[in-house]
């Protein structure tokens, strides 16, 4: 079985991003970059499936030269090889989906697993668009059967399982879980509770540097990267004004009524 997974390079979600004063773009100088955590979950799930069923895991990332670091991370987790689409352009989800569709044509995976969204733009579109372009079945927000407590339970109840040529996906939906069966090949996107991605270790980091990482270009794939979605403006959430401590309920009511005018 061959599984294609994505590993997007995103700004570190633990650090605050800075916005250019005119709101036109994000300031990336000095930013730390990491792999999209939902994609790490995708890689982990792919490794679990190939461990159970045999096969190969191929990591794809579209991005600048340094996106190779995120592919290497996937390889250090245990994936077999990487494909790096080199570009310095900002890509919208549609361009990513069309690139992936071409890679799928060449690689012919049985399964494509992507993070449900990237933590930088929160678009939540690439997987769905890809399934659309390919005409494949899709299982979005793959999650885990209940029982998230003990490590044994977590290990016993996978959210993705392959049985009789179909992939069974446990999906997180409002207020519960549903289980669906997809014909393969299929597209699956991962939600947060699907698994806990493994840490990388030094021998695996070293080995990963030697694994095959092919660089491709949008031209060689015949994909036009011009975005269909244009980013207009970034803005910070409104700053919160400082709170006040009042000495009695009466003062509070008085202030809410007369100063803030939120109660009558």
């Amino acid at each position: 079985m061959k599984i294609l997974v994505t590993m997007k390079r995103v700004t570190d979600y633990e650090r605050k991003v800075k916005i250019a004063p005119d709101g036109s773009h994000l300031i990336t100088e000095g930013m730390n970059f990491v792999a999209n955590p939902f994609d790490e979950i995708a890689v982990e799930e792919a490794l679990r499936l190939t461990k159970a069923h045999g096969g190969e895991v191929v990591v794809f990332s579209a991005g600048p030269k340094d996106a190779a670091q995120q592919i290497r991370q996937g390889l250090a987790m245990g994936a077999d090889r990487g494909i790096h689409l080199l570009t310095d352009k900002e890509l919208d989800s549609d361009a990513v989906a069309r690139l992936l569709a071409k890679v799928v044509d060449q690689e012919k995976p049985d399964l494509v697993i992507l993070g449900k969204q990237a933590t930088d733009d929160d678009a939540n579109q690439a997987g769905q668009l890809l399934a659309g372009y390919l005409g494949w079945a899709q299982g979005t927000f793959a999650s885990k059967h209940e029982g998230l407590e003990g490590p044994e339970e977590k290990a016993q109840k996978p959210g993705l399982a392959i049985e009789g040529g179909k992939v069974h996906v446990v999906r997180e939906v409002d207020g519960g879980l549903e289980t669906i069966a997809l014909d393969m090949p299929a597209v699956v996107t991962t939600d947060l509770r699907l698994n806990h991605p493994r840490f990388t270790t030094l021998p695996n980091i070293m080995k990963a540097k030697k694994k095959k990482l092919d660089e491709v270009t949008a031209e060689s794939l015949g994909v036009d990267l011009s975005p269909k979605v244009k980013m207009l403006r970034f803005s910070e959430p409104p700053a919160r004004t400082a709170g006040q401590i009042v000495d009695s309920v009466d003062t509070l009511i008085h202030k809410l009524k007369n100063e803030r005018k939120v109660i009558a």
């Binding site: 490794l47 461990k51 245990g78 493994r198 840490f199 270790t201 021998p203 695996n204």
Partner: peptide, 9 residues
Amino acid sequence: TDEDSDGTR
């Protein structure tokens, strides 16, 4: 080998 984090592969 130490291929897997649990060292079982």
